[in-house]
């Protein structure tokens, strides 16, 4: 095989991989996540897995009997959506400055069945006060 053919094959491979990644990233939706309002608008669609971004309604959080199941609401200040998750919650889940990105799909009762929780943490960093007692 000539060196030149090797480049061609190699570059073709890279282009193919890149296109696949781009396609995979854009698949399903042109955006990384939907707002709660947008998601609620398509809650009748139970087959597609989507990502939804919203803030946790702190008061709505209820744990199931086995401590693994959790039910909570998320909101974008316009609409509210109920979600169910079973698994370990991320560290910053309850932080009032963080937002959640939920990956999952709606069930028949329009409850969002979460497969994966991502925490979108605050962009602003705040220095901790010096602890004089430490």
């Amino acid at each position: 095989m000539t060196t030149r053919r090797k480049y061609f094959i190699f570059i073709a491979l890279v282009v193919a991989v890149l296109s696949y990644f781009t396609y995979d990233a854009m698949k399903g939706a042109a955006v990384y996540y939907l707002t709660v309002t947008e998601a609620v608008g398509q809650s009748s669609d139970q087959d597609t897995v989507i990502r939804v971004n919203g803030k946790l309604v702190q008061a709505s959080f209820v744990r199931g009997g086995d401590r693994i199941e959790s039910h909570f609401d998320v909101t974008d200040d316009i609409s509210i959506m109920t979600a169910h998750f079973s698994g370990v919650l991320p560290d910053l889940f309850f932080n009032e400055n963080s937002q959640l990105v939920l990956e999952g799909s709606f069930d028949e009762e329009s409850v969002f069945q979460v497969q994966n929780i991502l925490v979108k943490c605050p962009s602003k960093y705040v220095a901790e006060e010096e602890k004089s007692s430490a």
Partner: peptide, 22 residues
């Protein structure tokens, strides 16, 4: 530890990976 996943196909992450591949 912060988002809860190692990787997600977010625009920033995807474009950075493309940069690495280029």
């Amino acid at each position: 530890p912060v988002w809860g996943v190692w990787w997600t196909w977010d625009p920033r992450l995807t474009t950075t990976l493309i940069m690495w591949l280029i």
